[in-house]
Nucleic acid binder design. Structure first.
Lengths: 130, 130
DNA sequence: CCACACTATGTGCAATTTGTCAATAGTCAA
DNA sequence: TTGACTATTGACAAATTGCACATAGTGTGG
């Protein structure tokens, strides 16, 4: 059972606390238009894990439905079938901004949590409900 | 539509990137045994949002199934019906430790993301796929 | 030409997770 | 004995996610 995917739990523990896909895609598109396949690859460079292509494509289409991105078919075939090129919309730019604020808050929360943890274990090495 | 719950989206955008409930409960229990109702209240002091009681109780029971916490009924009634007292198990303590490592990584990811964002917008104020 | 590998995207479904509504149950006060 | 508050739980609907598979164009080797 090689822990891929998300619903998984190492010993029953959820593996990652963060949902990064949407903001990451928005940020990548902020750099300029791109098609899904490329975004898929760039996501990994981001330090985020490996994504299932299906999930990425689906997310892009959902974001398009919400008006955050817009797509058109790329006429100049390089290799393979026609590909859909996504670009950020002004709304998507705003949403990215909201995401950034959310992540700022998230950062504070994570830091508070970690600080509370370290502080507590420093004072009480192990004080379970004995 | 007062954004409670999770599947919600302000303008279609998912509300929070982080799942904090489990680690927060573990940390709170690291301070000592407590019952669900109390934990419920303390979660808010943590800066995390408001949680639905049902969700918290369910999470506690799931954590018990996994052996992270153990519970017993509190005999000394203060007010209301008997309440279940949860305490951290040694396994739960380990899991908390894993969670902390996960959150450390999360912190790095969030910081990298934010840094990448600020860096990029500084250089390219708005460069959508025009 | 045909099989095959690679690029590129999409469908459908099952499993998991999450939210919500409502039920139960004890205590206390009017 | 009704209602308000404490405390926990059950059941089901809705949302999310992973995954297996389908489609489709391009280029290569036999």
């Amino acid at each position: 059972m090689h822990r891929r995917g998300c619903g998984w739990r190492w010993q029953g523990c959820s593996q990652r606390a963060v949902r990064f896909l949407e903001p990451a895609l928005l940020l990548l598109l902020h750099h300029g238009p791109a098609h899904g396949y490329t975004l898929l690859e760039r996501l990994e460079s981001f330090g985020l894990g490996r994504f299932d292509p299906t999930v990425v494509y689906r997310t892009l289409r959902e974001m398009e439905e919400r008006g955050w991105v817009a797509s058109s078919w790329d006429r100049e075939q390089t290799q393979g079938p026609p590909r859909r090129v996504y670009r950020l919309t002004p709304l998507g730019d705003e949403v990215l901004h909201f995401w950034v604020q959310d992540l700022e808050e998230t950062r504070r929360m994570v830091e508070d949590f970690l600080q509370a943890y370290y502080q507590h274990v420093k004072e009480h090495p192990m004080e379970e409900g004995t």
